[in-house]
Design a binder for these strands. Structure first.
Length: 229
DNA sequence: CTTGTGGAATTGGTTCGCTC
DNA sequence: GAGCGAACCAATTCCACAAG
């Protein structure tokens, strides 16, 4: 079976890139667009199994894009809302969105919603089991029990620390930007000089090192983000 | 048994000084 | 300038206990 074809239309470069990376890691065939006009063009010219559409776009907003897409096809659309108010959600759904998700959102939730829609439309068949456990070079994370082990030594992490480590470990060798991690882990916008993420990272790093994990597996990419290998 | 209250513990965030 | 870490503060959660 060919991989499902997805189109991501979002003018937020960092979010668009990171979503694309996450989706490609899940073996989806992903195309990116960064403004409404080009996004619409791409959406009507090619066939996609699902479109992720930002509500607020330059040139042509997401609602207008959705309106035109609906005139041409029944391609499922998940709208990424900026404030997620009831009025905004109703507007999106009334134009024909299949689902709406307010920003900032949990990427796991978005992936599950994508899976649910693709299952309904028959693009993917069996329910895709959300990944619950990761094993990598001695490090073991279990999402259900929120437990972390390194070489069978338990590491106690707070919920935020666990989410942060899970995000990094589930995207090995990918540089995850600070802006993306702020949005997905701390669920807010990244502000220069906000040290919260650095602090969480520092605490996670300390606990991993105490458990014996080599320091260089959790790298800081100066001015860019963080990377787990 | 349920609800309210107060203190302790935990967690997340900020500040500041240091290093690279 | 960017990142790290210690110390501190504030908010939240947990839990035991008392009152209704």
């Amino acid at each position: 079976m060919d991989p499902a074809k997805l189109l991501v239309i979002d003018d937020d470069q960092s979010l668009n890139n990171q979503l694309t990376t996450l989706l490609r890691n899940r073996s989806f065939d992903v195309q990116q667009q960064f403004d409404g006009e080009q996004g619409l063009l791409c959406a009507v010219q090619k066939k996609f199994d699902l479109i992720l559409l930002d509500a607020m776009l330059p040139d042509r907003d997401g609602f207008s894009v959705l309106h035109h897409v609906r005139n041409n096809s029944n391609t499922p659309v998940i709208m990424l809302m900026n404030d997620g108010t009831e009025a905004e959600r109703i507007k999106g759904l009334s134009i024909g969105a299949d689902d709406c998700l307010p920003k900032p959102f949990n990427p796991e939730e978005l992936m599950l919603r994508i899976d649910a829609i693709l299952r309904r439309t028959g693009v993917i068949q069996s329910p895709v089991k959300s990944q619950l456990e990761i094993h990598t070079n001695g490090l073991k994370l279990n999402k259900r029990t929120q437990s972390t082990y390194y070489s069978d030594r338990e590491i106690t992490l707070t919920p935020t620390q666990f989410k942060l480590l899970w995000m990094l470990v589930s995207n090995p060798n990918e540089i995850l930007s600070k802006a993306f991690l702020y949005k997905t882990i701390l669920e807010r916008e990244f502000i220069l000089y906000d040290r919260s993420l650095d602090m969480h990272m520092s605490r996670v790093r300390k606990k991993l090192e105490q458990a014996g994990m080599p320091k260089d597996r959790l790298k800081t990419i100066h001015g860019t983000g963080y990377c787990f290998s």
